[in-house]
Design a protein around this nucleic acid. Structure first.
Lengths: 153, 153
DNA sequence: CAAAATTACATGCGTTTGCAATTATCTTGT
DNA sequence: ACAAGATAATTGCAAACGCATGTAATTTTG
């Protein structure tokens, strides 16, 4: 059995995974900041577009999970995206409480302008990490998410 | 040379590292939420205490990097921590613009109450990840941070 | 060595966020 | 079938955040 860290001081900050992940995500977000600002997008808006580019027509409550934002925050983010014509909302056929969200063509265009910056930041992260290590890394991340996620996806 | 992802749709959200890391950090933060609320702490406050538990007497600008918060946000977080008697601030001897931050005993107590929850969340993450994989994972995180960080630490 | 540029931290102010409550719809149990 | 409870999304309101700016101190440079 793998014992967790006993004290942060003993483990050292530089070996503490949540710390490392925070630092890395902070830099990743910073790398996207300029382009997001140029497009007038907030983080929840940017993430919504990214998720929608993969899973179009998703329910709002699912989108909130994928984008890791509160539903109330997402609600307002979608309102803004809709006002800018980047998404379209449709009441779900089976459940009239639920709403499905779709990317419009302008929305897809905005996302396509964003994606190269995400890909660049992604690539910059993994410089000097060989393919095997990268694969193992992703596999571990998947295991971790499986361990702690609340939803089935 | 390892080529980055060409399209998010092809790669799949579930293989996209920033997405996975966001999801995981979201759950990690959620796991601490209750205890933070009970202690009346915000995220920047909680992170400040954690960093200070390891590097006491750190400069504010360094703390901002370690805690991954804006300096303006940190300034207010420290103000609140000071008002609650959890930290102490001292002008740096060599540079009178700079301020060093120290944990008080009550501050250390609060942190010690927080730490078990961090350790629990940490352990929960790595369930089913063997030691070798975990070591490799941390090593990759360190490489990644080295790739993209702006500061020397 | 004085002026200009930089750095450290704090703060004013508008925006964003999160919690709690609300509305509307669906599901469950009797 | 109907009341009670759960769920989907939105919204009011106060707290938190981030950008830009301000003040003070240090470093650079001509």
């Amino acid at each position: 059995m793998s014992t967790g860290p006993t004290k942060l001081g003993e483990l050292g900050l530089e070996n503490f995974v949540p710390y490392l992940m925070n630092r890395i995500m902070g830099r990743y977000n910073a790398a996207l900041q300029d382009e997001m600002a140029a497009l007038g997008l907030t983080t929840p808006q940017m993430r919504s577009l990214a998720v929608l580019s993969v899973i179009d027509g998703i329910l709002i409550r699912e989108l909130a999970v994928y984008a890791v934002v509160q539903q109330s925050t997402l609600s307002r983010a979608l309102e803004a995206l809709h006002k800018d014509g980047l998404i379209r909302r449709e009441t779900d056929a089976a459940d009239s409480r639920a709403i499905r969200v779709f990317l419009t063509n302008p929305g897809r265009d905005v996302y396509e302008r964003l994606w190269p910056h995400m890909a660049d930041a992604y690539e910059a992260m993994f410089k000097g990490v060989d393919d095997a290590a990268q694969k193992a890394f992703v596999a571990t991340l998947k295991t971790m998410l499986g361990n702690i996620r609340k939803h089935d996806f």
